[in-house]
């Protein structure tokens, strides 16, 4: 039995999201095994909780970080979504917004930050630099996309992205979280490290 889940985002019609094809593919993949009704209801409840409470880690390396601050500030106010509880300790954060260039010197630090986060954890690559190296992609000291070292859930392009695209990216992440399964599949994405 295939359970079709479609995440609803408040005051943002499904059709207005840009890449619904990718999204539907993702939904298909996640629900390939199906699940029973009670578990699905519980899943929905937990996903609702998780998707509405994505606490970001304060992590910024360059320009995009300033735009992230603008998103937190009065005009754009990320608090409306309940994401304003920025945590400084990776242990307590749910999502890492990689905003800014990641250099090869910073790469192990970023990887370690990601490893320190508690599951479930999400990664948003913000800005051209984090996605592909951006304007610095030819440099000898720049990582060409953070997806080379950590799994990325949502890409937010721009240099730097406007605050609106930040919010759009976060809503896309909410949609993704809303179709995840807590029961039935593994909750922990990352394998236990070998001693």
């Amino acid at each position: 039995m295939e359970v079709k889940k479609r995440a609803k985002i408040k005051s943002f019609p499904y059709e207005e999201f840009k890449d619904n094809e990718t999204y539907e593919k993702l939904v298909q993949e996640l629900n390939a095994n199906g699940a029973n009704v009670i578990v699905t209801q519980l899943d929905n409840l937990i996903d609702w909780g998780r998707s509405n409470s994505l606490w970001p880690l304060t992590f910024a390396t360059s320009c995009c970080g300033i735009e992230f601050m603008a998103v937190c500030a009065a005009r754009y106010d990320i608090a409306r979504f309940g994401f304003e509880v920025t945590r400084n300790s990776p242990r307590q954060a749910d999502v890492i917004l990689v905003s800014g260039t990641i250099t090869t010197k910073m790469a192990p630090v970023l990887k370690r930050l990601y490893d320190q986060m508690a599951d479930p954890k999400y990664v948003v690559a913000v800005g051209g630099c984090a996605i592909s190296g951006g304007p610095f992609t030819k440099s000898y000291h720049v990582l060409k996309g953070v997806d080379k070292i950590i799994p990325v859930d949502v890409y937010v392009p721009g240099c730097p992205p406007r605050p609106e695209s930040f919010l759009y990216g976060m809503m896309q992440l909410q949609r993704k979280v809303k179709v995840e399964q807590f029961f039935g599949t593994t909750n922990k994405k990352q394998k236990e490290p070998k001693e």
Binding site: T103, K105, M106, F136, K138, S139, Y140, H141, V142
Partner: peptide, 14 residues
């Protein structure tokens, strides 16, 4: 330093 050293001066030369 250097966690955001992007090699701008070297890039400029090309």
């Amino acid at each position: 330093l250097g966690y955001i050293h992007r090699g701008v001066e070297k890039l400029n030369e090309s």
